[in-house]
Write a protein that binds this DNA or RNA. Sequence first.
DNA 1: TCTGGGGTCCTAGGACCC
DNA 2: TCTGGGGTCCTAGGACCC
Length: 423
Amino acid sequence: MKNNLTEQNIIMHVDVNSAYLAWSAVDALENGAKIDYRQIAAIVAGDPKTRHGIVLAKSMAAKKCGIKTADTIFSARQKCPQLKIIAPDYALYMRCSNALGELLASRSPLVERFSVDEYFVDFSGVKACQNDPIGYAHRLKDDIYRRLGFTVNIGISSNKLLAKMAGDFEKPNKVHTLFKSEIATKLWPLPIGELYMVGRKTLPKLTALGLTTVADLATVDKNFIARHLNKFGLALRDLANGEIDNFISTDKDGPVKGVGNSTTLPFDIVAKDEAYTVILSLSEMVCLRLRSKMKLAGRLSLSIKGNDFKRYSHQKTLSQPTDDTTTIYRAARQLFDEAWRGDAIRALGVRLSNLTTDDFYQLSLLDYQSLEKRKALNKTIDQLRLRYGRNSIFRATFSHSEFAPTKGGTADMTNFAKLKSQL
DNA sequence: TCTGGGGTCCTAGGACCC
DNA sequence: TCTGGGGTCCTAGGACCC
């Protein structure tokens, strides 16, 4: 076994247990709270008054009551009447995430943030880890707890996907391995719904095909699964066998493909002007982020969610790539006019994709001057917002509006320091 | 006081070109 | 003037992840 390990890559997946809840609990304790939220039935959830009332994270005790992530607060309360409900603090979560990233980076230069509460670390070239990765992982896990106050699960394997699945075994505060040689004993016995990428829609399809365990999927006839689930089915079968070459990439190091913001309104919108206002505030945020990445967008899409929760969208390829707020806003408004079915609107979203670098701006001679003026204006606005806050400057439209001048953004975007460093 | 927000990838049909 | 077929782009929608 040891020989085996030294010959292959050592990838670890580090996953914070009940991240938002744990981070809020640590923060509360540091601020003098008498109880540890992790020890009681507690959840982190948004505010139902603004129609954001869903469960974002839960304690183990809350989980035992049957509360799941994305449950409504309403249903969570029914499952557990004495539930403690904590409001999310995204800026805090970003600080905790960064602190974990820094600790990991002190152990290996190859650290990749996979989400706010998950990192991949490549320890292949780290001597202290090579002879005993499991012992090393235990010491790392305990060190994280001692220094940062929260527990993690660590999954170990020779690639990211298997490491991630290992990290999803028993929780919390555990270290697991899932090397290829262990797939038949550790992965195959699991119910098929626990396999990565088997979600709400796929599970019943697999069940209907008579597949109930990962082993069933791993050994199913290829043609059979391809006939029913196409390419996705074949990829899932490969995954069940630990073959990940054809599977969905876990690589987040690559360039970002798109930038989008969306928001659920506190009440349904029925007037076009109100929709325009929200579209403008979303455009402001999306364009700020786009410019901070030094990109131009070639495609714009606008999505509308009605009060029936059904989402529909409309998109267009822009005549030329841009990062200008006014240009994007006008185009988004036009998309809205073309798409809107006249129904009550619950949520709106603006998304930019087909990104290119902004080192050359295709200039049309006719509007060269106005383009330069707009670029200068955008830059000034960005700098003011990054220095004094996102709503320190806003368009006159918003001075008597019930809508915020910029809209959208949770974890990474509330961290203006980070955006600033990208400018 | 009932249901978030940020992403990625895949599919399928139609337009258009050769 | 009985009508194919491949390739690529565009668009809408849906699946999954955290």
